[in-house]
Write a protein that binds this DNA or RNA. Sequence first.
DNA 1: ATCTACATTATAATAATTCTAAACTGTTGA
DNA 2: TCAACAGTTTAGAATTATTATAATGTAGAT
Lengths: 142, 142
Amino acid sequence: MPKNCNFIEKLREVGLRPTKQRVKMCEVLYNREKTFHFTINDLVKLLSEKMNQKISLATVYNTVHAFEKKGYLKEISIDSHKSYFDTNTSAHHHFFDEDTHELIDCDESDIDKISIRKNITGKKINSVEVLVRVASDNQTQK
Amino acid sequence: MPKNCNFIEKLREVGLRPTKQRVKMCEVLYNREKTFHFTINDLVKLLSEKMNQKISLATVYNTVHAFEKKGYLKEISIDSHKSYFDTNTSAHHHFFDEDTHELIDCDESDIDKISIRKNITGKKINSVEVLVRVASDNQTQK
DNA sequence: ATCTACATTATAATAATTCTAAACTGTTGA
DNA sequence: TCAACAGTTTAGAATTATTATAATGTAGAT
């Protein structure tokens, strides 16, 4: 989604009612140069601290999930006890920095296309995701 | 870990005190032909239903994490609100059946080795995991 | 302006996991 | 052998992330 675009229109296009809260959330999520990776907690913090918006936690959850269902956001599974979301909804892979718990997009050119030679019979492949876990080079690992 | 081996010895080798509970859990986890994928919930159910062992939930958590730290188990991140564990601790990839929520090992030969061309500077790669999400071919997805 | 379906909200409920503090048990060494 | 201690287990409370509920609010059509 480009910068400073009309979020009201964008929301309408995918069939979501453009409420104040949703528009505000769009601004936080999509008015940025790079794709944004976040947890619900991050987002609530950003909304309240930087934007001075106190949107109910339930609304943040609802809205994030509504965005996800409509393809505005992608959920990434890394940590078993927190959900990460990504404003880059295209198929791509990630680095996960275990020191900072930060998610970083892989450049498309950094990893070859993964070919699955044998699939489970009767099933179709929904997605193929690579997660590269990294950590500081000079400290004892786990 | 081979079948019917002496779990008491095995536990001692990695520096874990071989308590009744730990030995029992080893039997459930490792006395099987194939590698075993499970959630804490699965394991508690197995212990109580099949083995007639009522081990405290806290102990199951503690023990699973102790095993993980010692390299007896590997944690797999798939679902943001449940932890999966794998008795196969070697580097390997997985299919995740979104219909049944079942984890299935990928054969080593089914996926090429993933080469990461550019890593984050100053970080070392801890692991590279591929997750292939599959679902029934003939039903509406999600 | 009014209506209605969808949204938002505060709060309660649930689920997974971790903490706590007391009781228990392998292991070590006298 | 057995006392002593550190590591374990336990039930239950606490915590954290998330979802449900039910009352109130609001966008968009009429």
